[in-house]
Amino acid sequence: MAAGKTGGLKRYYDLNGWLFIAPSLLLIAVFLVFPIFRSLYLSFFSGKGMMMKFAGFGNVVRLWNDPVFLQALKNTVTFFVVQVPIMIVLALLLASVLNNDRLKFIGFFRTAIFLPCVASLVAYSVLFKSMFSVDGVVNQALFATGFIDTPIGWLTEPFWAKVLVILAITWRWTGYNMIFYLAAMQNIDKSIYEAARIDGVPAWARFFFITVPMLKPVILFTTIISTIGTIQLFDEVYNLTEGRGGPANATITLSLYIYNLTFRFMPSFGYAATISYVIVLMVALLSFLQFYAARDRS
């Protein structure tokens, strides 16, 4: 009798548990789990539009002979290898200065530096495009201050177009990362700094030998999420280059190439799905890195 009663209670408890999570599970199954396996399936087919035939690993072979794919892969890697470290260092420096409550107007500075991550990706890309035109405000300012004597072709020269993309992402996301560091720094015991100061440890050394080691987990975390974000870069390059990833594919990213293959030309669903799995693999690798690093800590 008693056992039957707890059994019933347990069933009731369990049923409720399933009911609360059911809507999410259903949506995740239909709009996430199904599509991710479907792209894997599609990656074994080739052909245009709905005329698809089984190709085995044909698409993978095609990858290595496709100059645009190789260019897109190279660009994507270049973007995160160059941009992420610059941004992380900048965000760390800003956070460590902003962590000093003795400075005046600290609230203003914090809000100002954080504000870019409120801007929509499309809006800021378009703003940057207008600011970096050949006769635009940025070239004018560089000219007036004597940094350049001929205008930089930010949107027309392959090298500078890449620089522009990196500048743009750095503008948008530095404040975002800074907030994480600031939150973590506020958890560091202030007396450690006081002790170091009394011992005559200079500011730069306090930064490198106290702040950075204490923040290692957060730094690792933000590095990985920033890298994953940059691997998927799309909105910025699309809107800076009218969807072309130009000049001469200098800024085309994997996501942009997938989009163009699928929605700009006659769709190559299978081949585009294969490229999307390159992104999946890159992201998976980084996520496992993060996972193992996090596990080592705990």
Partner: peptide
């Protein structure tokens, strides 16, 4: 960790 690029075609 599932990137949207890998979902958009099936979706």
């Amino acid at each position: 960790m599932v990137p949207f690029a890998a979902l958009m075609i099936p979706l």
